[in-house]
Design a protein around this nucleic acid. Structure first.
Length: 482
DNA sequence: CGGACAC
């Protein structure tokens, strides 16, 4: 046990050394808005989570593998077709921080499991997409890599990235997401596509139907891995899939990616990934300092809606907006309230819509046909639309533990992920938190806000008057949005 | 609560 943990730590330390050798100039990431310093190993967390207290000799352990970081994509021994995809289709120039460090670990032997944490919008998707694409045996017409995502929307988005990046290769891929076409029992044909990107339910179904041979899978990727392995997330499904694949495939790598790993999940992960590479972001560096956040007190729900109307009145110069709500019901009612009066095209999305409708709403928003999208946490994670520069938390995200809603405890990870929907790749962004103390709901959002501020160590400035247009435009100007 | 399927 102790030895296994030593191995993990050794690898961790090695990466830290590698991190030290990279300079911001070398990677030229400043223009991409990426903070090099922020991606480092958290010593305190490591000691707490990965190393037993009595293991004082961890730092002397030398690992067996040194990975070179990739300053250019050419350093990665990628095929010409993949480089074309990166440069021509994706318009990539140099690897981002997470890419330069994690890609060599994914692409060069000895292949090891990987846990990688990096900020929202810092290029995680490209890491595992490139990882999957580059490990495919083109002559084997069968699934060889699987990527599991928490939502249908994210799976589709990831598959789109994969398709673009792999455009010049002959690699085939397929999405494993619910289609809505129920009862079509006939469709049990074997899956011959080489990469599968999907959601847990459908992938589980395909496996139980033996639609593909698990023996050929050599890479299993979990996007938003902390949620996929969380008790109140998809833990059971994920574990079942992982165990099945590891049992039938001798060398199935497991890759975990997310912007967040709370202590509970991190602990679980380090038990699960015994001999793997790990990269974590310092807790204090995973901050929201770069995100302009504001809070405004509203006496009631009607006042919240009025405020949103005011924001929308500020006009063309705002980009697209996502408004997060806690329940499906409030997504619907808020949409109805805004739609009737607002001049901007506004839609709402949640998991009760049928799949075609969901696809349509996402497409309209990504095409810029709709300005405002009201969403549940279905879009809290991963959703990538660069035109979004304002996130409004109509409700603050709250914890749900022991199968019970806990309205007094904020959900910090979800808050961070929601914020990450705006300001993609370092663009200007603002987050507007609508607070109201409504005794009827039993949720004191002001208290939730305070806890969030304390947790992330940030001060969220208060907008004095929720109905003052001057106040609103002032803060949006401050955030660089107007 | 929210997310995913099953049936």
């Amino acid at each position: 046990m102790a030895n296994e943990e030593n191995t993990v730590s050794a690898n961790t330390i090695f990466h830290e050394k590698i991190l030290e050798t990279i300079t911001q100039e070398e990677l030229n990431l400043e223009e991409q808005g990426i903070n090099i310093e922020a991606l480092t190993i958290d010593e305190t967390k490591k000691a707490k989570c990965l190393v037993e207290p009595e293991d004082s000799n961890i730092k002397k352990v030398t690992g067996d593998t040194i990975y070179q970081t990739a300053k250019r994509f050419e350093d990665l021994n990628l095929s010409r077709e993949l480089l074309m995809g990166l440069y021509v289709e994706m318009n990539f120039k140099t690897p981002s921080k997470i890419q330069s460090v994690s890609l060599p670990m994914i692409l060069s032997p000895p292949y090891k499991d990987l846990v990688a944490q990096a900020h929202n919008g810092s290029g995680k998707t490209a890491c595992f997409v490139l990882g999957m694409l580059s490990r495919i045996d083109i002559n084997l017409k069968a699934p060889q890599a699987i990527c599991i995502c928490p939502t249908r929307e994210l799976a589709i988005q990831n598959l789109e990235v994969l398709t673009r990046m792999g455009k010049h290769t002959k690699i085939t891929s397929i999405s494993a997401v619910p289609t809505g076409k129920t009862g079509l029992r006939s469709d049990r044909a074997p899956i011959c596509d080489q990469i599968v990107v999907g959601t847990p339910g459908t992938i589980k179904k395909w496996m139980s139907q033996n639609r593909f041979n698990a023996r050929d899978i050599k890479m299993l990727v979990f996007d938003e891995a902390d949620h996929m392995l969380a008790e109140d997330g998809f833990k059971d499904d994920s574990e079942r899939i992982m165990n099945t694949l590891r049992k039938s495939s001798a060398h199935c790598l497991v890759l975990l990616f997310s912007a967040t790993f709370n202590d509970t999940v991190k602990n679980f992960v380090s038990k699960m990934i015994k001999d793997g590479n790990q990269m974590f972001v310092k807790k204090e560096e995973l901050s929201l300092e770069s995100v302009k956040q504001f809070k405004v007190n509203c006496p009631d729900e009607a006042a919240k809606r009025q405020l949103i109307d005011k924001v929308l009145e500020l006009g063309d110069r705002l980009g697209q907006i996502i408004i997060f709500v806690r329940t499906k019901k409030s997504a619907k009612t808020l949409h109805e309230a805004l739609d009737s009066e607002g001049g901007w095209k506004c839609t709402n999305i949640h998991g009760d819509f049928d799949t075609d409708k969901r696809d349509e709403i996402v497409k309209e928003f990504k095409d810029g046909l709709t300005k405002v999208l009201i969403a549940t946490d279905i879009l809290a994670r991963g959703f990538d639309q660069s035109q979004v520069n304002l996130v409004i938390n109509y409700d603050l995200p709250t914890q749900y533990d022991c199968l019970k809603h806990n309205p007094s405890e904020p959900h910090y990870e979800v808050y961070l992920h929601r914020c990450g929907r705006a300001g993609r790749f370092g663009r200007k962004e603002a987050v507007l938190n609508l607070l109201c103390t409504d005794p009827a709901t039993g949720t004191d959002s002001m208290m939730l806000m305070e806890k969030i501020e304390r947790h992330f160590g940030v001060h969220v400035s208060q907008i004095p008057d929720h109905l003052s247009e001057e106040d609103l435009s002032a803060v949006l100007k401050e955030a660089g949005l107007l």
